[in-house]
Simulated assay, not measured.
Amino acid sequence: MTVLVTGGTGFVGSHTVAALRRAGRPVRLLVRDPARVAPALAPLGVDPDGVEVVSGDVTDPAAVAAAVRGCAAVLHAASVYSFDPRAHARMRAVNVRGTEVVLDAARSAGVGQIGYVSTFGALLPADHDPVTPVSPVGRPRETYLATKADAERVARRHQDEGAPLVVTYPVATLGPHDPYLGDQTARLRNLLRGLMPIWPTGGFPVGDVRDLARLHAEVLRPGHGPGRFLGPGRYVSTREYVRTVRQVTGRPLPTVHLPAGAMLPVGRLADLAQRVLPVDLPAQYGAIYTCRVSRGVDTTATDRLLGAPARPFEQTVADTVRWLAGAGHLSRRRAGRAAAREA
């Protein structure tokens, strides 16, 4: 009954491990750095000593083959999620090649349940609204989304060949306990630090990592068949996003919204500068592009499976801000009244 999880020390992966352990499932992790396991899992109430750890990289066929051996299920959650141009080479290797290696190894080992964590962005740009689990794979003009679209084609080929594969499509994900302070969490933090006074128009679907983890535990439940599920959440315009953060924190957060199309050249220039600058720039082409091409998501099947819709966006934002302050990533002053609320 052991479940192998790749990417288990990341944001989505660590919360998924916690959900699997709460469901009583034995978990094995394939990780590059075993020292990351305890800091990622302990804050979620998972005893690191109760999880089996195998060292290796998802792009190494021998390491992956050894990791999947004897497992009843595999969840491939490892990927490089970033709009930082400095990560392009690594994401091309991990997101596509890693998916090929892990899914091939799982099928060769006869694993009965395989899960692959894609992204709603792999279905962009879409010619219809909302995006559904059966939407065609997109051809996005942005490196991260393009690598995930290529990986999605790998996953769908396996499904077409009859593999026992479930694909999930997380939306932009927030929530507490982000081990690496990833893209979405960092963007919220930057807004509260006053580093993002200019926002593109448009928006993107947003969900809670805890709801997504529940989805992963559910689709890996023994007896659950193959399929595709959009991650829990809903579309949020950038104006609503900023407005909600204002409400949660009680801070004015002055911002200006400019047409996303007009901001794309600025994003390109920022990406060029980011390649040589040692500091992280808050302006990124990929984030602007995503705001421009995103659509709503149809989560009907997901809500039915989980028995409830995603938790309110306001709650997710409040919990994320509170955690940022509690973990020392944000001052209590910048967290505003969210830091004063009970966790």
Rank of each mutant, 00 (worst) to 15 (best):
G328K: 02
L264C: 03
V293I: 13
L215C: 00
S14W: 03
R25F: 13
R268M: 07
R292L: 09
G138W: 12
S331C: 06
Q274I: 01
G112E: 15
A35L: 12
N95T: 05
F229Q: 07
R156M: 12
S55D: 12
D60L: 07
L165N: 04
R141I: 07
R221M: 02
A310F: 05
T302W: 12
A343R: 14
A155L: 05
A73S: 07
A38L: 02
I288F: 05
E342L: 14
A283W: 13
R69P: 03
S294G: 10
V96A: 11
V166F: 11
D303F: 02
G231L: 05
R292V: 00
T99S: 15
R25D: 11
H158V: 00
G98E: 08
A89L: 15
A93Y: 09
H177W: 13
P259E: 03
Q159W: 09
R221A: 14
V317W: 13
T316G: 15
A109H: 06
V266H: 00
A93P: 06
V17T: 03
A149L: 05
A67K: 04
E342S: 14
P61I: 02
G175I: 00
V245F: 12
W323G: 02
A63Y: 14
T173S: 10
R334W: 11
G326Y: 04
H88L: 10
V51P: 01
A35Q: 12
T132G: 15
G336N: 04
P179L: 01
P26R: 06
R36N: 09
A339G: 04
K148G: 03
G45F: 01
Y180P: 12
G10Q: 07
